[in-house]
Structures are given as structure tokens and as C-alpha cells.
Nucleic acid binder design. Structure first.
Length: 256
DNA sequence: CGCCTTTGACCAGCGC
DNA sequence: GCGCTGGTCAAAGGCG
């Protein structure tokens, strides 16, 4: 959950609604000229386009504000639920937190029919145990980092009790070595979208990004990955083409 | 042959 | 003290 919020954080910040209308800066690539060259476009047309884009930007800002307020409300609910935990459970959690810093959990959606408990995250893990726990019918698998013998990093993987297609991975301890490959080192997080057999791989190192530069770089890579996945998705391309052609048809219709 | 998973046994902590 | 539960160990066997 925390890693999920951490992932969402930069995105939410990147889309933080702004009340400053001067910051609205429609991309030149969006300024479509239908049926005539940019030289022929009159100031009136450009003004109309600008107004239209401003309106659209305003609508998107409203949507983002709504999403942001929903996120805030959910966060409050989560805090309330956390506070309503029975005292015994509270003590247990407090003890666990005191003894083990750097514990992070993440959920990964997989194929529900798959029995695999593997969460790919770029590291090499060796399974050393499996146990059926009281609160969940599906077994919990215990993994230890096998890349370096002295590495204290561990993880537990278990299917969600509510949704068997979701794997809950709990990471404990820090890796005392670099990720196995140079690619992993330069790419702290990679996200696969679309296919059912894909796994979301997250770098859950407790200290997060080493610097603001790394964070910005991560956001850039994440955006590229998402854009790449979307452009490779035929259904998305089809929807996009449909939206653009619909828009063009509207404009032509309005001009005629 | 080395590395991995599986699985039953064992251990420690906690509540009653 | 006893039973329950979660976490770990280690032997056995599979696989490339």
C-alpha cells in the first residue's frame, strides 16, 4: 500500500490541479489545423482553439481535483481503520515495527488461475519455506535474497484473501548489494501493463530514491514506459484514432 | 553438479 | 504450563 501510494505520489503531484490559468500551456502538437495550413489560420481560429483547449484543461483539472479529493478521503478512512485496531493487535504491530524498520508491502495482480507465488522485482530470491496462515487459506511463501549470501533482505508472498488474483508481497530488510544487472540499477522500477501474465516489478528499497535527480529520472522512465505500453496496445490506438477522427469530423461539421 | 522447490519438523513468542 | 501460530531449518528430490 505504501509503495503504491509512493508510486502514485509523483503522478498526483505531477497532475496537481492549478488554479493559475496562466500556467495552462497547450502543447503545440495539439493545435490541429483542419483543412488549411497554419499560415492560413486566422487569429480568430487560434483564439477559438485556445479557448477550447483552456476549457478542456479546466475540465481535466476538475477531474484531477475530484480524484485527489477521493484519494484524500480514502487516506483518512485508512487512518481511521488503522486506529480502530484492537489493542492487542496494536501492540503486536508496534513491536514488529520497532524491531524491523524498512518493511514494505506491495500488491501485484496476476492470473487468478496461476498458482505461482513469484513476484519479479529484479532480484534473485530463494524460497526457504511455505506456510498456511490462520487468516488466509492460501499459503504464504518465504523468500530470501540469493544473489548475495550475506544479504539480509527477505520477502513474504501470499495471495490476497479477498482477491486470489492479487499477490501481496512483504519486503523486509535492505539489500546490501547492487541489483543483479546494470539495467536494474539504472531502472529502479519497471511497470508492465496490459497482459494478464505480466508482473508489476517495484524497487522497494526503504530509502527510495537517492536524490531528486533519480526521482525525476524515475518519473520520466515511468512516463515513457506507460506511453510505450499504451501506444503498443491496439485497443488504445484504435480508441485514440476514433477520438481524433471524431474530433476532426466535429470540426469539419461545424465549419460547413 | 549446483541451485532450486517442497515439506515436515522444530523453535520462539504470545495469550489464556 | 500448554496450545496456537508464524517463522525458519534442513533433508530430499527435481531440473537444467
Amino acid at each position: 500500500m505504501s509503495s503504491f501510494i509512493r508510486l502514485l505520489g509523483p503522478l498526483i503531484l505531477a497532475f496537481e490541479p492549478s488554479m493559475d490559468s496562466e500556467r495552462i500551456n497547450p502543447s503545440p502538437s495539439l493545435a490541429l489545423s483542419i483543412g488549411r495550413s497554419p499560415d492560413q489560420a486566422s487569429n480568430g481560429d487560434l483564439e477559438a482553439k485556445l479557448n477550447e483547449l483552456s476549457e478542456e484543461n479546466k475540465r481535466l483539472n476538475e477531474m484531477v481535483k475530484a480524484v485527489y479529493s477521493n484519494h484524500t478521503a480514502l487516506h483518512h478512512q485508512l487512518m481511521e481503520l488503522t486506529n480502530s485496531v484492537p489493542p492487542a493487535e496494536k501492540r503486536k504491530r508496534k513491536r514488529m515495527c520497532a524491531n524491523m524498520t524498512g518493511i514494505y508491502t506491495t500488491s501485484v495482480r496476476i492470473d487468478a488461475s496461476s498458482s505461482s507465488l513469484v513476484v519479479r522485482d529484479g532480484y534473485h530470491w530463494r524460497k526457504y519455506g511455505q506456510k498456511v496462515t490462520k487468516d488466509n487459506p492460501s499459503p504464504r511463501a518465504y523468500f530470501r535474497c540469493s544473489f548475495a549470501p550475506s544479504c539480509p533482505a527477505k520477502k513474504k508472498v501470499q495471495r490476497s484473501a479477498e482477491d486470489s488474483s492479487v499477490l501481496i508481497a512483504t519486503y523486509e530488510g535492505e539489500h546490501n548489494h547492487d541489483p543483479p544487472t546494470a539495467r536494474d540499477k539504472s531502472l529502479p522500477c519497471f511497470v508492465s501493463l496490459g497482459s494478464s501474465d505480466s508482473a508489476v516489478a517495484l524497487d522497494l528499497r526503504p530509502h527510495g530514491f537517492g536524490s531528486e535527480v533519480e526521482c525525476v529520472e524515475f518519473q520520466r522512465i515511468l512516463a515513457e514506459k506507460m506511453a510505450s505500453s499504451l501506444t503498443q496496445d491496439p485497443s488504445f490506438a484504435e480508441a485514440l484514432a476514433s477520438a481524433i477522427s471524431g474530433r476532426m469530423f466535429q470540426r469539419l461539421h461545424a465549419q460547413s
